[in-house]
């Protein structure tokens, strides 16, 4: 009995320390975020003073009426959407090629696909910029999309390849054996089994593209995506809290898909474990 209660005591002691550490870690991560949110309501517009001299909701209205915010937001959404679709198609196809067939240099291809995410964004950016310059390609919507697709494909690919590995190869063969051609097999067997992984990968890709700065700096030219617009806003002290309002919107827009992706893959892992 004493041994038992002693053990219990030790355990609760340990978990208390862990709780404190976790709380400190979370505070460290989230406190700056909270400060940004608070500044969205400040009455001081030229510089950020702590504590805020007063609180107001007027910056939401101001932000709403600023056409440059809308233009940047729409560009970001369009770029993220197109880059995600591109990544879904190319990432899935690459994953299927790598996981289903064995060919010479398969591992090398696999590594090359993942490389862009390991590479510093600044390298990717410079590489793309000099490539565009070499081939006389003017900056456009599509140059931004191409830049984003480099890392979006990786995210989709990683998700898809992990799921495809779990998918027994004989399922595909069984489908073909029963009369399905490649397209029908993809539609009726592969897609239902990798669907949630693709959705999760797609949402992550969207979120990554939406707040990308470094690569975009090199591939956007005069265009402004939302993160680039914010960066510029910080340099010019004019209606500063507008940036904070936009920041809150960005957090909301990127947090929701990441949370959903997390839930989707997590729930999935659980069902996979229970069916085993």
């Amino acid at each position: 009995m004493t041994a038992f209660s002693g053990k219990r005591f030790m355990r609760s002691e340990g978990s208390l320390a862990v709780k404190i550490a976790a709380a400190a870690g979370l505070a460290f991560l989230l406190a700056p975020l909270a400060i940004i949110f608070v500044y969205a309501f400040t009455t001081e517009e030229r510089s950020f003073v702590w504590p805020p001299p007063g609180l107001t909701l007027k910056w939401f209205g101001v932000t709403w009426d600023r056409p440059d915010v809308w233009a940047a937001l729409m560009l970001s959404v369009r770029v993220a959407a197109v880059a995600t679709i591109l990544a879904l198609v190319l990432g899935t196809l690459t994953a299927m090629a790598v996981s289903r067939s064995r060919f010479f240099g398969r591992d090398a291809v696999s590594l090359l696909v993942i490389l862009p995410i390991a590479l510093p964004g600044i390298i990717t950016g410079i590489a793309l910029r000099s490539a565009f310059a070499t081939f006389d390609i003017p900056f456009s919507f599509w140059t931004i999309v191409v830049g984003h697709a480099t890392f979006c494909i990786v995210v989709v690919y990683n998700n898809a390849v992990a799921r495809l590995r779990r998918l027994s190869g004989s399922l595909v063969e069984a489908s073909m054996d029963l009369g399905a051609d490649s397209f029908q097999t993809f539609r009726h067997v592969v897609l239902p089994n990798v669907g949630t992984a693709l959705l999760a990968g797609g949402m992550l890709a969207f979120a990554l593209s939406f707040d990308e700065v470094i690569v975009t700096t090199f591939t956007a030219g005069q265009q402004q995506t939302l993160p680039l617009w914010m960066l510029e806003e910080l340099i010019r002290p004019r209606q500063r809290p507008v940036t904070n309002v936009v920041a809150m919107a960005v957090v909301a827009v990127t947090f929701v898909p990441i949370l959903l992706a997390f839930l989707l893959t997590g729930a999935d892992e659980q069902t996979a474990a229970t069916t085993k």
Binding site: S168, E173, A174, L178, G179
Partner: peptide, 15 residues
């Protein structure tokens, strides 16, 4: 898919 032959797989391969 164009052969009139069907297979029972070792791991059954049920969808």
């Amino acid at each position: 898919y164009r052969r009139n032959v069907n297979t029972v797989f070792q791991d059954y391969a049920l969808f």
